[in-house]
Design a protein around this nucleic acid. Structure first.
Length: 294
DNA sequence: TGGCAGGGTCATA
DNA sequence: TATGACCCTGCC
């Protein structure tokens, strides 16, 4: 990997297994917007950047300082991890191999812990367009304004920005029954009852158990927070899509994720995204059997 | 225009 | 362990 600056942009070349679109659209994050000129506005925690995938392992970041790149985006996009080695650590059967080939550019974003926690609490019994809307309104109401490329965006609220709020104040966000969970989570993080360092370092099951003390956090959301917000690549969020894959191809929903190896979480991302794009194609094809229908 | 389902969790039985 | 309720909006 080589990093250069050119005309105020950060140009990263020589990336293996990197595809910006796959990485953003595989369901691990909710704050990104396609730009008219191509590329994406990526929002994360209190940062924003314009990101352009130029193909052939080249990523161009625009609108951020070199310090922000080094201090934040380089880690966020997981640019320093050797994905070839990671992939070798996955026990790939033919189906998983197909998914790994089709979605080879997915990277596990290293997202902000609190943002990930709140975002996936919001995801419960919800669809992606609506999740994105709720997250956007939450930021617009309780985050701080920032400016990039002449546009205003809002930072993700910090625990202290939400903890003292009331359900009435959250009503315009239209999170529904999840509003009370958002407030509880913010209060538990602010008070230290939920400690990010513990979630990152304790044994996975213990960390998951702690997260599940938060109202609105069940097994699935806890695993999402562990994988996307705490860098725990063994975490294995099993949603309806993955449960269906396990049921149809791995002998049942109770299949132990350990069969995929130490990076089961990454294997899950390949399987999840692959299942969704396959279902999308089946849906788009005229007369296609809805094999992926639940 | 209306009805359904949604990347889950919780309370209750 | 199973079932219904929860908010509300995108989508068919």
């Amino acid at each position: 990997m080589t990093i250069k600056t050119a005309g105020g942009d950060i140009v990263v070349t020589g990336l293996e297994y990197f595809d910006l679109e796959q990485t953003l659209r595989c369901g691990q994050c909710f704050r990104y917007h396609a730009l008219p000129k191509g590329g994406y506005l990526c929002l994360a925690a209190d940062k924003a950047v314009h990101a352009f995938d130029k193909g052939a392992g080249t990523l161009v970041l625009s609108g951020c300082t070199y310090e922000d790149f080094e201090g934040f985006w380089r880690g966020y996009f997981d640019l320093d991890r050797d994905y070839a080695a990671l992939r070798r650590g996955i026990n790939a059967d033919p189906l998983l191999q197909e998914a790994m080939d089709a979605c080879s550019g997915i990277r596990v974003l290293r997202q902000d812990f609190f943002e990930t926690l709140i975002s996936f609490i919001i995801s419960a019994n919800n669809n992606i367009p609506r999740i994105r809307g709720i997250v956007e309104r939450l930021c617009a109401r309780f985050g701080q304004p920032r400016f990039i490329g002449g546009e205003t965006y809002y930072t993700f609220p910090r625990p202290q920005d939400l903890a003292a709020r009331t359900l009435e104040e959250l009503a315009p966000v239209r999170a529904g029954f999840r509003a009370k969970y958002i407030l509880s989570a913010a209060r538990m993080v602010l008070s230290g009852e939920i400690n990010e360092a513990d979630i990152r370092s304790l044994p996975l099951e213990k960390a998951r158990e702690i997260l599940m003390h938060i109202p609105g956090v069940g097994p699935k959301v806890a695993h999402c927070v562990l994988l996307y917000g705490a860098g725990r690549l063994t975490a294995f969020p099993a949603d309806v899509w993955i449960r269906r894959v396990l049921r149809e191809s791995y002998g049942g929903e109770d299949c132990d994720p350990a069969v995929f190896g130490p990076y089961a979480g990454l294997a899950q991302m390949y399987l999840f995204h692959h299942a969704r794009i396959t279902a999308g194609r089946a849906k788009a094809a005229p007369g296609a059997v809805m094999a992926a229908a639940r």
